[in-house]
Amino acid sequence: MRDCCVICLTETWLSDKVPDSAIQLPGFSVHRADRSQDLTGKSRGGGVCFMINNSWCDYANVHPVKSFCSPDLEYLMIKCRPFWLPREFTAVIITAVYIPPQADTDRALRELYSAISSEETAHPEAAFITTGDFNKGNLKKVSPKLHQHIHFNTRGDRLLDHCYTPFRDAYKALPRAPFGQSDHRSILLLPAYRQKLKQEAPTLRTVHRWSDQLASTLRDCFDHADWEMFHVAANDIDEYTDSVCGFIRKCVEDVVPSRTVKSFPNQKPWINGDVRTALAARSSAFASANTSDYKHAHYQLRKTIKAAKREYRDRVEQQFDMGLCGRD
């Protein structure tokens, strides 16, 4: 267990009288949300806790997102930026959950779903993991898109402990002996997720390399075209449209040079030539071992990525605006 990236504990029974140093494992950072007597009316029990392996994600890259405590639900949500992540993810947001047996399960699930949904909106490229003791609750009732990865009984003849992610076959769950005096089985979750880069093959597409000079040349070509010829030769509107569109495509192919681009399934849609150039410059600066050059290249890369994201966002929004105008 000492090699686990994350250890999630529920029903910790911890309070402010117990310092982190009393429970901290060597090589792990502690992140906890103890039960509040003022919010739950109970002075004992409850509480959730994370122990994060420093070799997976150091303390500086673990950030608390939100915590919640009520008679029906207790949870702690943290955002981790590990040392290594597949390119399709920017962070891992993990939520430790405890729903007491006497809780209003529907209310607890709605509250939990609302918290997770708001973070999914704020961090659309993060990987979300929700795990803990749900007792009678089932998060799939309010979010059917999630996948539950634990399929064996965890306390007697009941399955009380769940792990949800948006990814099918993300984990292989194995039962283990109870932790300490717990009456629940411990669960070891082994990652089985395959990166998008390995799930799908890269695709080839043809793109045109436009310039102001080529656009001017193409405009001259259209200005000298005999468009009436297509109208006279066509028998109906469909044939007229096909012939005009075919002529325009032929002119573009003859005037504008094209090249074949390989797109990988895990490639972000906003990555363009400027970003690739900035990435290459940063790699060269890193290889040169020049600290000042590397800092400058790193700054330029971040600046270029922001500009590329902004350009992609504007392009997508413009498409929606054009669609709305067409309906009007």
Rank of each mutant, 00 (worst) to 15 (best):
Arg194Gln: 14
Cys325Val: 15
Met229Ser: 13
Val256Gln: 07
Ala122Phe: 04
Asp157Cys: 10
His63Thr: 13
Leu14Met: 06
Gly47Val: 03
Leu218Lys: 03
Ala201Lys: 15
Asp274Thr: 11
Tyr240Ile: 00
Ser292His: 05
Ala233His: 09
Ala122Glu: 06
Phe83Ser: 14
Gly41Gln: 06
Asn138Ala: 06
His147Lys: 06
Ile78Phe: 02
Ile93Ser: 02
His31Tyr: 07
Gly156Cys: 03
Ser283Ala: 14
Cys221Leu: 15
Ala127Gln: 00
Arg158Ser: 13
Arg249Tyr: 12
Asn290Arg: 09
Leu188Tyr: 11
Pro82Gly: 04
Pro100Lys: 02
Tyr75Thr: 03
Leu204Ala: 08
Leu73Ile: 09
His149Val: 02
Ser70Leu: 03
Ser29Pro: 03
Gly132Ser: 02
Arg205Ala: 07
Leu324Cys: 10
Ala234Lys: 05
Phe286Trp: 11
Asp274Lys: 15
Asp169Phe: 10
Glu239His: 09
Ile237Val: 13
Phe83Cys: 12
Glu200Gly: 08
Arg259Leu: 13
Leu188Trp: 11
Thr203Arg: 12
Leu188Asn: 07
Gln37Phe: 14
Thr291Cys: 08
Trp270Met: 08
Pro178Ala: 05
Phe230Lys: 05
Ser263His: 14
Thr131Trp: 03
Asn266Ser: 13
Val256Met: 07
Arg282Thr: 03
Ala287Gly: 04
Lys66Ala: 15
Ala115Lys: 00
Val207Lys: 11
Glu119Tyr: 05
Ser186Tyr: 00
Asp157Thr: 12
Cys69His: 01
Glu119Phe: 03
Arg35Asp: 04
Ile150Val: 11
Gly45Leu: 04
Ala192Arg: 14
Ala108Pro: 02
Gln319Arg: 15
Arg185Pro: 00
Pro257Lys: 06
Asn53Phe: 05
Leu109Gln: 07
Val207Leu: 12
Val261Ile: 12
Thr291Leu: 14
Pro101Val: 06
Ala103Cys: 08
Met322Tyr: 10
His208Asn: 11
Val62Thr: 04
Gly180Pro: 02
Arg87Ile: 08
